[in-house]
Computed example of a mutant assay.
Amino acid sequence: MGLPVIIQIENIYYPILAIVGVPANLVTIVILSRGSYGLSKCITRYLVAMAVADLFVLIYEVILYEIKDAYFPYSFLNYTPICRLNLALNLVAMDSSVWLTVAFTFDRFVAICYQKLRTKYCTERTAAVVIAVVCFLSVLENVPIYFMFEPREIIDNVPWSCYVKSSFYAIPIWAVFLWLETILTPFFPFVSILLLNALTIRHILLANRVRRGLRGSNNDPEMENRRKSIILLLAISGSFILLWMVNFLFFVCVQFTDVRFFETTYDAPFTIMELSGYMLRCLSSCTNTFIYAVSQSKFREELKKVIKRPLTLITNLIK
């Protein structure tokens, strides 16, 4: 009997995602870190931190979990203690990525809507502090994750793989933890990003209307800068919302129905929904590079330079 269709899709999807996503994030980190992209140091810090978090998501979830399970099921990485650690680190990276997106959205909200506060809050130092706090809290939040798994099977007295403990759904403290996890990621980020974007767009539309009335022209450099800022902001946060939607809905189902995580009946609708949600949220970890390339001309120029450099070196070596 062949593998379930959803597993066959995963076995093709995740390697392609790793092949595309890891280099994309590495290139993004290189370009942004060089500081030649034309963005402020504050924005650059957030974007670099988001790219690093996304890179770790691809490493821990896509490579060390999904691809490892598909192609190396009995490697040492599948030993239960290592599997638990990998899952915990994966969620640390995932939460960091999500909350850095929220932090970036809030930073742009302040920069656009509150000019007086902008000079104090939208600084490189503040960005560094916010990033450090987000990463620390993500680690702290996911410490219990290590203890919520048990071995999926015992082979020659060796525990292999990870499976959510049955007590996770029965003991009140775990139920509270699951509620907090759902609220913190992804419910609150969803609401925060939608609200902040709505307020930011409203402010920009009102400001543009006023400036257009005063200047009597659409050729306003300030309006053009705001337009570019809002395109970047909406592209990043909109991509996050769309790609996390299925995973968000599955978390809601777990809270209000008898659905559980990591069920093994792969033809069950909720299992397909869960696995599809994981695939889409992993995709969100490599989309920002393409968003920058499409929406930002300076990024495209830097990307071309980065791509051409190794090609030029290879050509010179051949000659």
Rank of each mutant, 00 (worst) to 15 (best):
L3H: 11
L3E: 13
V5I: 10
Y14M: 05
I16R: 03
V22L: 14
V22C: 05
N25Q: 14
T28E: 15
L32T: 01
L32G: 04
S33V: 08
G35T: 04
L39E: 13
L39Q: 11
C42H: 11
Y46V: 04
L47Q: 12
L47H: 11
A53T: 06
A53H: 04
F56Q: 13
L58S: 10
Y60C: 14
V62D: 01
V62R: 05
K68E: 10
A70V: 05
P73K: 04
F76V: 09
N86Y: 08
M94H: 07
S97P: 07
V98C: 15
V98F: 10
W99L: 14
W99S: 10
W99K: 05
W99V: 04
A103M: 07
T105Q: 10
T105C: 15
D107K: 11
D107Q: 14
F109Q: 01
I112G: 04
C113W: 06
R118A: 08
R118G: 09
C122S: 14
T123P: 01
T126D: 10
A128R: 10
V129I: 15
V130S: 06
V130Q: 06
A132Y: 10
L140Q: 05
M148C: 10
F149K: 08
I154M: 09
P159V: 04
P159Q: 03
P159R: 02
W160G: 02
V164D: 00
S166D: 15
S166Q: 12
F168V: 00
I171W: 11
P172W: 00
I173S: 15
I173H: 11
F177S: 04
T182C: 03
T185P: 08
L195S: 11
L196K: 01
T200P: 06
H203A: 08
N208M: 11
G216T: 12
S217I: 13
N218A: 15
N219T: 12
M223S: 13
M223K: 06
I230V: 13
I231R: 15
L249F: 05
V252T: 14
V254M: 15
Q255Y: 07
Q255I: 09
F256Q: 01
F256C: 03
F261S: 04
T264C: 03
T271F: 03
M273R: 00
E274S: 09
S285I: 00
C286V: 08
A293W: 15
V294K: 04
V294D: 02
S295M: 05
L303F: 12
K304L: 13
I314N: 03
N316S: 09
I318N: 07
I318F: 09
